[in-house]
């Protein structure tokens, strides 16, 4: 049986209309590639990071209590660090699929890029969520009660509630973030990993 000959029969007929009918369609072609999606997400995250940082500064101006300023200053510092990390990672991400490398190399690059992005986001979440929750709680307390922070802290219920809220909010936020990343990228990463592992195990096996 001549497999090459049978294979050659497929696709002999011209594709009706062709893949691209003209320049307009070429310009309309959009990418749905996970890497492009990560690049776009990083840009959106960075823009939000800047907007939120400005928001923290505004809140610190309007609520000049040292506890609020301390909390938001910590979050602001982390935010700035993560914005710079995001910008750096975005620059490092490949712009497109490369035909100059092997499938194995390309899959490794893409797997590493998406994994690093998720790790960065989770790392940020672990630091930012607790402080942001505590600072928000203090600010809400001031806003809602009309009392100053010193007065609020005289009642033990306030710091206890603040800690509980911060812990619950942080766990919920991190769990949700993990879930969202899982829904969006886990299958993609798992598929890449399976194929990478298969190729690497075949490479390391001397077949005779």
């Amino acid at each position: 049986m001549d497999l090459d000959k049978i294979w050659g029969e497929l696709g002999k007929e011209p594709v009706e209309g062709g893949l691209i009918k003209g320049q307009q369609q070429l310009k309309d072609v959009k990418s749905l590639h996970p890497l492009i999606e990560v690049r776009n997400n990083l840009r959106i995250t960075n823009i939000w990071g800047i907007v939120i940082s400005i928001g923290y500064i505004v809140l610190m101006i309007f609520y000049p209590y040292w506890q609020v300023i301390l909390g938001f200053s910590i979050v602001l510092t982390f935010n700035i660090v993560f914005i710079f990390q995001g910008i750096r990672l975005r620059k490092q991400l490949p712009l497109s699929v490369d035909a100059g490398h092997s499938m194995l190399h390309e899959m490794k690059v893409h797997h590493a890029a998406v994994t690093q992005w998720i790790e960065n986001q989770m790392y940020a979440a672990r630091f930012v969520f607790p402080v942001a929750a505590a600072s928000g709680f203090m600010m809400g307390g001031i806003w809602g009660s009309g009392k100053c922070l010193g007065q609020l802290f005289t009642k033990p219920i306030f710091p206890i509630s603040m800690i509980i809220s911060a812990v619950l909010f942080s766990f919920a936020g991190i769990w949700l973030a993990r879930k969202m990343f899982g829904i969006s990228y886990q299958k993609f990463l798992d598929r890449l990993k399976v194929n990478i592992d298969q190729l690497e195990s075949q490479r390391s096996t001397e077949i005779t």
Partner: peptide, 29 residues
């Protein structure tokens, strides 16, 4: 997107084949 970087060191068909496979393997979720 990659066509500007195609230097013609291999045939276009080979380049397109490689690019198609690399895209298929890194695109599908």
């Amino acid at each position: 997107k990659g066509y500007a970087g195609f230097e013609g060191r291999s045939a276009f068909s080979t380049w397109l084949y490689r690019l198609s496979l690399n895209t298929i393997f890194t695109f599908r979720r």
